[in-house]
Design a protein around this nucleic acid. Structure first.
Length: 205
DNA sequence: CCCTGATTCGC
DNA sequence: GCGAATCAGG
């Protein structure tokens, strides 16, 4: 394979999208990730920043250029002659203010929903408990104690992608144990995911 | 172990 | 220019 204009274009696009070199190599085919990385460097776009030669990382996010009078409490008040008048910021009715409270967290002010719902991809529905054989269920419960609790981004081709917990809460992760060759799940989860029709039939009460 | 990108250097 | 081997890090 050679670097045709089209392939280079694909490379540039995917690299700009933040895809990893190995992902790009897989997409292009016929090249290794090393080849992709080598090309990336030769093209001069190693820094993942457009035509920007300098400026290592823009890293947007909240500006927060303020030197920030972190201690709050509004010390530089022109008129300190009114202690109880109106606290600039009535700190919530905190019963136990007794806390070493370090920094007021400059950025974390945003709720930051943590839905962590994969959104997409053919993840299987959690089978109803009454459709799983008692043996498999027991096995799964045991295995899930050893689950590696991976996040979506940590999954690879050979990690078990069985979801555990409630996606609507933070008590959600993926099994992450070594998946069976060619299967998306570990042995235990394959056991509950792939059942012969005969076994499923009339399992429910 | 799996993965990531960075660099080198013979081709 | 190319990319395998290697390095350095998570």
């Amino acid at each position: 394979m050679s670097w045709t204009d089209e392939r280079v274009e694909t490379l540039k696009r995917m690299w700009a999208e933040g895809q990893s070199a190995s992902q790009i190599a897989k997409e292009l085919g016929g090249v290794t990730r090393n080849a992709v990385i080598g090309k990336v460097h030769r093209l001069g776009l190693s820094n993942r920043v457009g035509s920007n030669g300098s400026q290592p990382e823009p890293e947007d996010e909240a500006p927060a250029p303020q030197p920030a009078p972190v201690a709050a409490a509004a010390p530089a008040r022109p008129e300190p002659s009114r202690p109880a008048a109106e606290p600039p910021r009535a700190a919530e009715p905190r019963p136990a203010p007794e806390r070493p409270t370090p920094a007021p967290a400059p950025v974390a002010t945003i709720p930051l929903r943590k839905p962590v719902v994969p959104a997409g991809q053919p993840l299987p529905p959690q089978p109803s408990a009454n459709e799983i054989s008692p043996e498999a269920l027991a096995s799964v419960r045991e295995v899930e104690k050893r689950a590696k609790r991976l996040t979506l981004m940590e999954l690879t081709e050979r990690t078990c992608k069985w979801p555990i917990g409630d996606p609507a809460t933070e008590d959600f992760w993926f099994c992450g144990l070594h998946s069976m060759p060619g299967k998306p799940y570990c042995e235990a989860h394959v056991g509950v995911a792939f059942q012969p029709m005969s076994a499923r039939r009339d399992r429910r009460r």
